[in-house]
């Protein structure tokens, strides 16, 4: 599978990331070991300069990681045409043992990179930086996670076999299958929906109260409840099919790529929500709330428009 052009492109960019992250890693280790803001030796000046390089590299990786992640999802989707049995990215993700871990790891890393940059931005606004060492210790952890991601990605693409039959999303996300996802469908829908909308109300409430810690907590919970309700309930309205629960199919052309919009809204909302613990600016919470509300509006609109069109609920 490695010779597929899209896969090659992803691996090439990953190699680039690997080399530059390695540079940033070495620099970070030096900073963590030797940095001392109270000294004014030439070493300290040098370290400070190297800090600029490290942060530029991390910024570079993050800025490219976002479109690359979209491209990755898009590639998985297009690979599903080539693999027997797969009808969307879900089949390709499930084709190897690595797929699911890689997906979770990728999303986690995106968040961590974004938080790192947020931290870095706050630091550079300060007169006297306070958390320089901590910042780079954070990066060292991030580096390890990132390296695991790069390695797992390579393993996954290497392991995909074109002539092996895989499951399609219809079986993976059906309520009869024995997977852990199917337990989700035993939670009754009103409860799930109640949680989802109650979470939305909580976001609004904490925003009014200006309590950013509770807001961040509510935002993280919102992410979970939104994902669960999307798979268990809202997805079926997007597909207009009561048995289809796939979280990947709506990334496809048939559904006007609406999945990209939904996930983008959800991810940015959660990012700003959780990140608002770091800052006392109100803007982060505003963005978070706005995106969450747009998300809620869109998924609810799918349900309502289905009801108006057909007169029944699914």
């Amino acid at each position: 599978m490695l010779l597929h052009p899209e896969v090659l492109a992803i691996l090439l960019v990953n190699t680039l990331f690997f080399l530059f992250a390695l540079i940033a890693f070495v620099l970070s280790v030096r900073i963590v070991l030797f940095y001392n803001a109270d000294e004014s030796t030439s070493l300290q000046y040098k370290l400070q300069k190297e800090g600029y390089l490290a942060s530029t590299i991390i910024k570079f990786i993050f800025i490219l990681k976002i479109p690359l992640f979209l491209f990755f999802v898009f590639t998985l989707d297009s690979l599903s045409n080539l693999i027997t049995g797969a009808m969307c990215a879900a089949g390709v993700v499930d084709a190897t043992v690595y797929g699911n871990y890689l997906f979770v790891l990728k999303i986690l890393n995106l968040y961590l990179f974004a938080f790192w940059l947020m931290l870095h931005y706050r630091e550079s606004k300060r007169e006297v930086p306070r958390y320089t060492k901590e910042k780079y210790i954070f990066f060292l952890l991030l580096f390890i996670l990132f390296m695991i991601e790069v390695a797992v990605e390579f393993l996954m693409f290497d392991a995909i076999e074109l002539d092996k039959m895989v499951d399609c999303c219809g079986t993976l996300y059906s309520s009869t299958s024995a997977s852990y996802i199917s337990t989700l469908f035993h939670i009754n829908t009103p409860l799930l929906l109640g949680l989802f909308y109650a979470n939305g109300v909580l976001l609004l409430l904490f925003y009014r109260l200006k309590n950013r810690y509770f807001f961040a907590l509510a935002s993280a919970l919102f992410f979970v409840s939104a994902l669960l309700s999307l798979i268990a309930f809202f997805g079926t309205y997007i597909y207009e099919l009561p048995t289809h629960h796939c979280p990947f199919c709506f990334l496809q052309k048939e559904y006007y790529y609406v999945g990209y919009l939904l996930y983008a809204l959800l991810f940015t909302s959660t990012f700003y929500g959780v990140a608002s613990t770091f800052t006392d600016e109100k803007r982060g919470m505003q963005y978070s709330l706005l995106y969450a509300l747009i998300y809620m509006f869109i998924v609810s609109a799918y349900v309502l428009s289905y009801y108006f069109k057909t007169g029944v609920w699914l």
Binding site: P5, E6, A9, I10, L12, V13, L16, F20, L53, T56, I57, F60, L64, P67, L68, F71, F74
Partner: peptide
């Protein structure tokens, strides 16, 4: 178009960082 983007631009930007 996206494929072309990822094969060329990151390489150039990376080369210009240091």
């Amino acid at each position: 178009l996206a494929l072309l983007f990822f094969l060329s631009i990151p390489l150039y930007v990376a080369a210009s960082i240091i």
